[in-house]
């Protein structure tokens, strides 16, 4: 150390460099970009620009990044939402949810799902926004790929009691929407589902063939037995 106060002046030089740099360094203007769906020229430049168009954040183009997650949504395949809903009200997510924010009521009768198979469906499926902690455990435990994360982040409402409890019909979103907001994740999920389905069908087919072969062998054996019976007679 040479002179007293030299270290302070050294530090001051750093702050001066940063201060001057803040006028010239482009990357310093915005550090966090929450508007990645917009082209760079349309990024908000001041607070007054937000939101650019009313309700833009709630539109179907809201995506922050591939894995962003804010609140769960229920998936349905192409068609009427309630006719093609994937959820079968098995209530696994309700049990596994760490903060216990999901409430499900199972339907009393079965209804045909997208594959034409009669299944139960959720008569009620409510999630409490104020309790949900966006952890994605419900997505991971769901065996039917029926619940995934939405990236809508503007969920505030003036209605404190009714508005914070999101109902089934508001949670329902199409698979196309899911592809739009999380393209990478949705593609891998669809791939895996198709593979699972194919494997299941192959297994079913093999099982059916096996049963058929077994039945044939049984019939042949019975025939042979009959013949031998006839012979002895």
């Amino acid at each position: 150390m040479s002179i007293l106060g030299g270290g302070i002046f050294k530090g001051m030089a750093v702050t001066l460099r940063n201060f001057v740099g803040s006028y010239f360094s482009k990357e310093r203007f915005i550090t966090t970009n929450e508007y990645s769906w917009r082209p760079e020229s349309e990024l908000p430049q001041s607070i007054g620009d937000y939101p650019k168009e009313e309700g833009e954040q709630l539109s179907d183009t809201t995506t922050v990044n591939h894995y962003s997650r804010n609140f769960p949504m229920l998936l349905h395949d192409t068609g009427e939402p309630m006719d093609t809903i994937r959820c079968v009200a098995c209530q696994i997510c309700e049990r596994e949810c760490p903060p216990q924010c999901i409430y499900i009521e199972k339907s009393t009768e079965k209804k045909e799902n997208a594959d034409g198979k009669p299944q139960f469906y959720p008569a009620k499926f409510d999630i409490d926004v104020s309790v949900c902690m966006s952890c994605q455990i419900c997505v991971e435990v769901c065996p039917f790929d029926a619940i995934v994360m939405n990236s809508q982040f503007e969920l505030s409402t003036p209605d404190r009691f009714g508005g914070l409890l999101v109902r089934r019909d508001d949670l329902l979103k199409s698979n196309d929407y899911y592809h739009k907001i999380h393209p990478q994740e949705a593609a891998t999920r669809d791939e895996r589902m198709a593979a699972d389905k194919a494997a299941k069908e192959a297994k079913k087919k093999a099982a059916a063939e096996k049963a058929k072969a077994a039945a044939e062998a049984k019939a042949a054996a019975a025939e042979a037995a009959n013949e031998s019976k006839e012979d002895t007679e």
Binding site: V64, N65, H66, Y67, S68, R69, M133, S134, C135, Q136, E140, M149, Q184, E185
Partner: peptide, 23 residues
Amino acid sequence: EQASGARMMCNYFRFGGLRNDVP
């Protein structure tokens, strides 16, 4: 955030690996 979906509450590790690959 890009890897796990959240800035601070990442919830990224799983028993036997990680939840998803990095983008």
